[in-house]
Amino acid sequence: MQINIINGEYKVAEKYLRILETTLFHKKWAKRLLEVLYDESRIAQISWVKEKRPLVPSSEDLRRPNEHIKALNLLLEENPKNQKALHYKLCYHLLSKDVEEFAYTFFEYRDILLRGRIPRVYQEALVVYYINNPDLEIWSEIPVEPATISRFADYNKQFERYEGEGLKLKAKFEETYWFYYHYADAEED
């Protein structure tokens, strides 16, 4: 229903609000929205409408239902600061074990991403990419924490000691991207 309002589909939103109007916990909220529903100027002032409408792509394109990366790229083209779309895209690559695409995306948006602390799982994936591409100039801009690097060294040591036997690594490294990369079954889309 909120998506319908954001998209200006007020008739559909009204249908759902009429139901919510009869519920115990949402009736006041629904009544308030119904009062302003067709008043564009008042709808545009609602905080979540104000926040979401600028994120909707304005350039027309088509995408197939399973083209998730295209959908996220369209959102990022419209608003490169769309953090949710960016993190969804990065995580999609991580879940797909596509470390290369993850790194490309990370580097492309590094200005935005480096404004805060890099999430641990991103750092772990970047270390994996670094192993195969140590000579890139860009590494000087990417602050991977020493603790991550030393933990990665530990993971590798244990991996070799136990000859890749996942169960032995599980207790200590289950939460790491390296463990996911080696042992998780990523399903095909």
Binding site: G8, R63, P65
Partner: peptide, 9 residues
């Protein structure tokens, strides 16, 4: 038959 979504609203 190919179904595709529009990017715009």
């Amino acid at each position: 038959i190919i179904p595709e979504f529009y990017s715009t609203n």
